[in-house]
């Protein structure tokens, strides 16, 4: 199955890295969309459906926490699995993001296999 994924990060270098790691992990990407912050992501989701969202937290403009809140408040978008990729490994942050609806959490730095494991777990039966 080929996936449509949205990567949300203000760092173009990080977006490139995540995309490359997903591809190297063996996931078949039919489309990989990119957004520089939460507002850009929501705008894109108005016209494109994706199977998963991978988002940073600290971003100028709309940050990852607000993006998660907006997604959770939307009847349609809340069904899209969202994975947080962040440097913040504090327990309080992880707990708050889980409450907001994050289905997975990856702490930077991470190994490529860490991202693959979280993606497989999050996408569940979709990845066969």
């Amino acid at each position: 199955m080929a996936y449509r994924v949205l990567i949300v990060d203000d760092s173009p270098a990080m977006r490139s890295f995540v995309k490359r790691v997903i591809e190297l992990s063996g996931f078949d990407l039919s489309d990989c969309f990119e957004a520089g912050d939460g507002a850009e992501a929501l705008k894109l989701l108005g016209s494109e459906w994706v199977d998963a969202i991978l988002t940073d937290i600290n971003m100028p403009g709309m940050d990852g926490e607000e993006l998660l809140g907006r997604l959770s408040a939307d009847d349609l978008l809340r069904s899209i699995p969202t994975i947080v990729i962040s440097t913040d490994a504090t327990r309080s942050r992880m707990d708050r993001l889980a409450t907001l609806g994050a289905r997975g959490y990856i702490t930077k730095p991470f190994l490529p296999e860490d991202l693959r494991a979280v993606l497989e777990h999050t996408l569940g039966d979709l990845h066969a």
């Binding site: 270098a13 600290n58 440097t87 913040d88 490994a89 504090t90 309080s92 730095p109």
Partner: peptide
């Protein structure tokens, strides 16, 4: 861009090691 991201990751990693009970903002 890559050096900026490298700094971001090192900083977040250090702060997560020295301060695991409260959040920080970069």
């Amino acid at each position: 861009e890559v050096v900026c991201e490298l700094a971001n990751m090192i900083c977040g990693s250090v702060l997560s090691r020295v301060e695991s009970s409260s959040t920080f903002r970069l």
